[in-house]
């Protein structure tokens, strides 16, 4: 099992190192990610939203739908935490005592 894990990790590292050759250089202004849509955001955000902080403008205005879904995700995570952890004691005795006995033996 240990050698399988080492092989998988080595394969992963080799694949990633091969992939880095095709990536743009460090801090390249002409990288594909920097010339596609982001110039529009930088140039238009003050005129569109009167917000100098471009990150805030993109977060809450241009991509507000994304942020809405993301807020739903984190609120759902909080609700899930309560639902997982609250009122365990009533369940414990009914269904889980079997495991505990088999654990002792």
């Amino acid at each position: 099992m240990r050698w399988v894990n080492a092989f998988i990790i080595l394969l992963f590292v080799a694949l990633m190192l091969y992939a880095t050759v095709g990536l743009p250089d460090h801090a390249d202004p002409q990288a594909p990610a920097n010339v596609h849509v982001s110039p529009t955001y930088i140039e238009d955000s003050v005129a569109d939203t009167h917000t100098p902080n471009i990150v805030t403008a993109v977060l809450a205005d241009y991509r507000g739908y994304d942020t809405l879904g993301e807020t739903v995700v984190i609120f759902t995570a909080g609700l899930a935490c309560i639902l997982i952890l609250m009122k365990r004691k009533a369940n414990d005795k009914a269904t889980l005592s079997k495991h505990r006995h088999s654990d002792r033996m």
Binding site: A47, T49, T71
Partner: peptide
């Protein structure tokens, strides 16, 4: 555009309250 800035402020306050409540909730339940 001024109204857009105001809308961003409203949304940011909403996000702040949601994150605040959720993190306190996660801490309490953990």
């Amino acid at each position: 555009a001024e109204l857009r800035a105001l809308g961003i402020l409203i949304v940011e306050i909403g996000i702040g309250l949601a994150v605040f409540g959720t993190l306190v909730l996660i801490f309490d339940s953990l």
